[in-house]
Design a protein around this nucleic acid. Structure first.
Length: 419
DNA sequence: TGTCCACAGGAAATACGGGGGT
DNA sequence: ACCCCCGTATTTCCTGTGGACA
């Protein structure tokens, strides 16, 4: 009896889920799950709706000389993240490669993605890997050696070589070494016709460049403006069509997401992420996506941003933040001085059996937390009583506890006594 | 006006860890 | 197995500083 009852319940809820399903094809909500051809298909649709039309035309013009066996300049793409620099360029390069194949022109392209910051060494190493010039090293091999290997592997190649360097300004430290290699040395060492494409989200990117390199670099520049609400609506509509059951998306939802996204950042990736989160929420609740769902999803995304950031941060940074949160709590004020904060941090370290860092190092951790906007600081002089950096937690309401608990999980410490 | 607190934050020194060469 | 190299994390050392107080 019991069992039969359970079965009908399960069947019922499954049928219910099917009929009220919000998501029909989950994969189209997450680019990482799409295989190459599907990605290109999505792009095809996007570009067919005239989004990024102007940029596409300019890029085509820029590369037109290739078809005449001529050598175009290098190209720089400027625009904030999520404005489609990468996608547009990849889509175009794919198209160009195909065109060249038909015309019998040799063309290779390589996409070096520096989305996460890395030093010159790793950037070069990654490039070498992409060119099959070397295996992956962590350390221990000289820059010179890497450069040599890259050159050697291209020795015999005579065709066009497009190096698409995504997010160039993420090369930390000796960016000049890296760029000098690409811009000045490489073209002289190999016979391939090298075309560099840089993407960056800072307009003044090339200002801090070694002037010698800069003068060597003949650039065409192209600016990607952030998507406006209309563009975003088009992009979102495609996703809705491919991934969701259309009836499950209430009126105004797409418009709302597009409006939020265009107001805040104009970032298409984030807009799609918001759509995806809304869809998941609605599906779990067994209802359709409403404007309120979107609000809730936006809140969750905001919150996740903080928790994942702190969870994946180095332990000392976590300890510093935990210490500061405790310090603020015990003081029952929203503001602590750096001295008190340091004491609290040391206390936390003791309980977590973690070796505490010096005050100097702690200061740097605080600066870092400030940059991630977990908190705000301001140096304040208290006259005779010295000077201090006042620390104010800058975390949305009620999130402090969540974050604090997240950190505790990572440490496995006893709760603070006075809580 | 000078003193002096309690730190900030720059520079250089040192420790560390992981990897290649031999 | 041993040594050297390199990039990164911390420490050590240091100079600087706004303003309350005497």
């Amino acid at each position: 009896m019991e069992q039969a009852n359970a079965r009908t319940k399960m069947a019922g809820s499954m049928r219910n889920m099917r009929d009220h399903a919000v998501i029909l094809n989950r994969r189209f909500l997450d680019d990482e799950q799409l295989i190459r051809s599907e990605q290109l298909a999505v792009l095809e649709e996007i570009f067919n709706t005239n989004v990024r039309d102007r940029e596409m035309r300019e890029i085509s013009c820029h590369f037109a000389p290739v078809l005449r066996r001529d050598h175009p300049y290098h190209l720089a793409l400027w625009g904030k993240s999520g404005t489609g620099k990468t996608l547009t360029m990849i889509y175009f390069l794919n198209f160009l490669a195909e065109m060249c194949r038909k015309e019998g022109i040799a063309l290779r392209y390589v996409h070096l993605d520096l989305t996460t910051a890395r030093p010159c060494f790793r950037a070069l190493n990654d490039l070498a890997c992409l060119l099959n010039a070397s295996k992956r090293y962590r350390r221990g091999i000289s820059l010179e050696e890497l450069m040599g290997r890259i050159e050697a592997s291209l020795e015999a190649y005579r065709g066009y070589l497009v190096l698409f360097i995504d997010e160039v300004d993420n090369v930390r430290r000796d960016r000049d070494t890296f760029l000098a290699f690409l811009v000045r040395r490489l073209p002289q060492q190999i016979r391939a016709k090298l075309i560099l494409v840089f993407a960056s989200n800072r307009l003044n990117w090339s200002d801090h460049l070694d002037p010698r390199t800069k003068s060597f670099l003949k650039l065409n520049e192209l600016v990607f403006k952030p998507y406006d609400a209309i563009d975003l609506q088009r992009i979102l509509q495609i996703r809705v069509r491919k991934a969701l059951r259309p009836q499950a998306v209430e009126n105004g939802v797409v418009e709302k997401i597009a409006a939020l996204a265009s107001r805040e950042h104009g970032d298409a990736r984030k807009a799609v992420a918001l759509l995806a989160r809304s869809a998941h929420l609605a599906e779990k609740a067994g209802c359709s996506i409403s404007v309120d769902t979107v609000d809730e999803a936006a809140r969750q995304i905001e919150q996740d941003k903080y928790t994942t950031m702190i969870r994946t941060a180095p332990v000392q940074l976590q300890a510093a933040l935990a210490g500061i949160i405790e310090g603020v709590r015990t003081k029952r004020a929203d503001l602590v001085g750096s001295g008190e904060a340091y004491d609290a941090y040391r206390a936390f370290c003791t309980r977590a059996s973690l070796r505490p860092l010096t005050g100097r190092a702690f200061g740097d951790l605080v600066t870092e937390l400030d940059m991630y906007s977990f908190l705000r600081t301001r140096v304040e002089s208290k006259g005779r009583y010295g000077r201090t950096r006042e620390i104010v937690l800058d975390i949305p309401d009620g999130l402090a506890s969540t974050i604090y608990n997240t950190i505790l999980l990572n440490f496995d410490v006893s709760q603070q006594a006075s809580d």
